[in-house]
Simulated assay, not measured.
Amino acid sequence: MKNILVAINKEQNAGLLVGKAEEIAGAFNSKIWILHVSEPDPDDYLGLEAGPQFAHEKRLKNRKREGELVKNLTESLRERNFNAEGMQLQGSTAKLIKEQIRKLNADLLIAGHHKKNFFYQMFVGSMEQDIIEDLSIPVLLVPVRH
């Protein structure tokens, strides 16, 4: 197991997911890749950003905070002698995670699992299910807080 991809979403759960990656990477001397996927900017049909200025500023502020989180987690791993890289991408979460798995030749995906009730999953669907469909590698879903 050479490459572990950790897909993080919320700051409150990131440490737990990275901790699981540390346990496994320590046993197999694996590289840890930390990935955060940010929502893309909504564009109107002219290619101009849609929405009021405050919404644009909020997205920029969130992206900066998310980028700092990825950077801090990566640096913390390196300080403890783990081989680690971090990245922040924008777009469809499931699609980008699948692309990175192929690109990085990942051997394991670690992601958070948010417990949802039956009706939520029936009408909204499950991000976890979208991600793990068509994957040929093991997935470790870690129960996390909402």
Rank of each mutant, 00 (worst) to 15 (best):
N3L: 04
E68I: 11
Q88E: 08
S136M: 04
E99C: 03
K115Y: 05
F82N: 09
E68S: 06
N9I: 12
Q90C: 05
K31M: 03
P52K: 04
V139R: 05
L48E: 15
K20L: 02
G86E: 07
A55C: 03
L35F: 01
N9A: 07
F28A: 14
N29Y: 02
F54E: 15
G15D: 15
Q88W: 00
T93L: 12
V139D: 11
E39T: 06
I132K: 05
E23H: 00
Q100I: 08
L135T: 12
A55W: 11
D41P: 12
K20Y: 11
F28W: 15
G91D: 13
T93M: 07
A94I: 04
L108G: 08
R63K: 10
G86M: 06
E128L: 15
Q12A: 14
K20E: 13
E49C: 07
N81A: 10
P42V: 12
E75M: 10
E133L: 12
L77G: 11
V124C: 03
I34Q: 02
K98F: 09
K58R: 09
R65E: 14
P52D: 13
F119M: 15
D134E: 15
S136W: 05
G91K: 03
A55G: 05
R65I: 13
K71H: 09
N3K: 02
